[in-house]
Write a protein that binds this DNA or RNA. Structure first.
Lengths: 395, 395
DNA sequence: CTCTTTTAATTTAGAGTCTATAGTAAGAGG
DNA sequence: CCTCTTACTATAGACTCTAAATTAAAAGAG
């Protein structure tokens, strides 16, 4: 099988390094003594793991204003002065690039490019933007994350199908960027990116099971379960837009009829409202009209919410998530829509299934997610994850 | 946090013991040399792990008819002569008890009791049945698994809600049985039990992501993802029966209208057919009538399949499983119904989502599952699971 | 200003694990 | 009987952990 086993003495120290990083991510900057209590290993072991992480520039030591007796401890934080990561978000009309410390906090406002129209230009534009953030005045760049508004085969690092950026379909973007930049790079679907950043520093901190409902041109959910993105057997988990909402409904671009996407996507909504209002409206217009109380808009939007709630209800029944995070321009502009959505969901969902499940707007973006993805990769590539799974009753 | 860390040198040997057991489960009886190739550690390490597992009576050594040159190897198998486990299935009308070797193969035909009508009688009946299988003529009993046709809080070992066995609701069955029997015991929901046994030795061998569609009085799915049963945040994942299938449909016992269960459960189907045929029919009658070609029956059954397919379609879209295993008396009696179900599913599901997903009947029962659960517990309690999760592109 | 107290960090000894390598065991074939 | 082949055992070297002793750096008491 595997040429050489991972089960070797040094696995232990890797595991402890990983535990140290996760403890600091969860509790913020800590001293070695605090980490000792938190992790449950000896001070000596913590010190050793920390020294290795300092060497790898994943952690930084800093003095704090001491207050108690005794020798003052040095506090450790995720590296922000010595190291950085770079996140890239490829969207339909623009590409965003930003650098961040290992805490996930962007250190600059994002640089915005308009999306090039060929693949080589895209790779080149990203290379230039990344290089301008990686000069010698900047901290050392440890990795690059790229979120893409497309179906991604994340294990192969390849774009699967990019409906709205056709030239990306099938491209081995991860390998091409890694090569062009000379720095480890990983690509991730935008929906999944939001999952990762919401968990790292957004609405789902320390939550293992939640959904991100992504409403854009289509409707999809990002599934975070057991602390990991869930891909399904072939990587297509989280499809919601092509669930049949009404039998013999409107024709969908997928060839079937009555898909949820024909009723509740932002794209469908602006189409319906455009024809009812007799002029072209986009999502921002809809939000404005909705907030101003336009009755036609309110009626259509609420109807879309009702249909959407049915689809979300299925997902809640099946996943029993601890939270549902809505990532949508319309919902961000009109937060009260969350209440409407929840109202319809409660009508069609078993209380046992939605009890304890909060519905909130996303607080992060795919750009944050691309950064969070690199950071997770850096921490998780140290060692595999230990997963306890005992369900035994001791006698 | 945890008093003492699990990350210690002996974790390595535990991990290797676990790898040895899983290799033998996957590949069948093996020699130490074969395990060495399979696992990727040194022969010496394998030999040490094996010797520890022999001591724990989880493995057995046996001579085989040698054929090649060289010193003949001793082959190792999961213990079946020296050790056994006992499985119990608590169903609405009967309780099944059987002993099995650690390979999961039952060593006896199941003993069948009619389900007692009080909790103490139930515990006592199980105690007697188990003790008659644990006398000194029998191999040593290493554990007991109990599958229950009810909602279970599997982490607490407690029955949550038992709609059809009311006296079980809220009972700490796992602790009570462990105490009564003096042997580690674990309880598991019947739907989940089928998941576990299908993966151990049924239709889902070596498959990490699949669903078990359980049609009985209700409709539910067991979700196996990443090789583990998925519970959701609060343990209620896999609900399908109370998905709203038609707005303003028939009143469901849950208080809402149009639940899938009112249209497609075996219970609903027999109700509808009883009233249309003018006489009481149960599931077995329906199967007979269906196979004999009765048009009314065929029409109603196909309509139920159509509704069911819509619900399954949602699950397939969201989970993208590698297989859907149907556990249902009606489907087992009429295997051609699978084709009907698949036909309707294909009508309402994105090809990308169901491609590569097979729909098959279950080959195991909750009793097999209760046995499989104990065996998993024995192997998995040795060490936590190592979960690699790298998605990085090496430069 | 010196000494004690307190907390932080390092060092060292002891036990456990792995790999690698050399050596022993048990059969088949000439 | 000897050699070849495969299976298994034993030992040395490197790495890890814990635990306990030692050193380091500050605050406070006298």
């Amino acid at each position: 099988m595997s040429q050489t086993s991972i089960v070797q003495p040094r696995l232990l120290s890797r595991l402890n390094e990983r535990l140290v990083l996760h403890a600091i991510q969860a509790k913020g900057p800590s001293t070695r003594a605090e980490l000792t209590d938190e992790i449950g290993v000896t001070f000596a072991t913590v010190a050793k793991a920390v020294s290795s992480l300092l060497q790898a520039q994943l952690l930084e030591e800093f003095d704090e204003l001491t207050v108690g007796r005794g020798r003052p401890a040095k506090r450790l934080r995720l590296a922000v002065d010595e190291s950085q990561v770079i996140g890239v978000a490829i969207e339909v009309d623009e590409v965003l690039v930003a650098a961040a410390g290992l805490d996930g906090e962007p250190r600059t406002t994002a640089e915005v490019l308009s999306t090039p129209s060929t693949y080589p230009e895209l790779v080149n534009a990203i290379r230039q933007a990344v290089e301008s953030l990686s000069t010698h005045e900047h901290p050392k760049t440890l990795g690059i994350g790229v979120s893409v508004a497309a179906q991604i085969d994340e294990s192969a690092g390849r774009v699967a199908v990019a409906a709205n950026l056709p030239y990306l379909s099938g491209k081995p973007l991860q390998a091409d960027l890694s090569e062009a930049l000379g720095i480890p790079c990983s690509i991730i679907r935008d929906t999944h990116a939001v999952c990762v950043s919401e968990r790292l520093r957004g609405a789902a901190k320390n939550l293992d099971n939640f959904l991100v409902l992504h409403l854009g041109v289509g409707i999809g959910v990002g599934v975070m379960m057991g602390g990991q993105i869930f891909f399904g057997q072939y990587g297509y988990a989280g499809e919601l837009g092509h669930t049949t909402a009404v039998t013999d409904g409107e024709l969908c671009h997928c060839g079937r009829r009555g898909c949820l996407e024909t009723l509740a996507s932002e794209w469908a909504l602006s189409g319906r409202l455009s024809s009812r209002l007799g002029r072209r409206v986009n999502v921002d217009d809809i939000a404005r009209l909705y907030l101003s109380g336009d009755p036609t808009t309110r009626q259509e939007v609420h109807e879309a919410c009702r249909q959407l709630a049915l689809g979300v209800s299925h997902a809640v029944h099946l996943f029993n998530p601890g939270k549902v995070i809505v990532y949508s321009r319309l919902f961000r502009a009109c937060p009260e829509l969350l209440l409407v959505l929840v109202h319809y969901i409660e009508e069609t969902t078993l209380p046992l299934s939605y009890q304890g499940c909060e519905f909130v707007n996303a607080t992060t973006t795919p750009l944050d997610g691309s950064i969070a993805r690199v950071i997770s990769n850096l921490t998780d590539s140290l060692a595999p994850r230990l997963l306890r799974e005992e369900r035994h009753q001791a006698t």
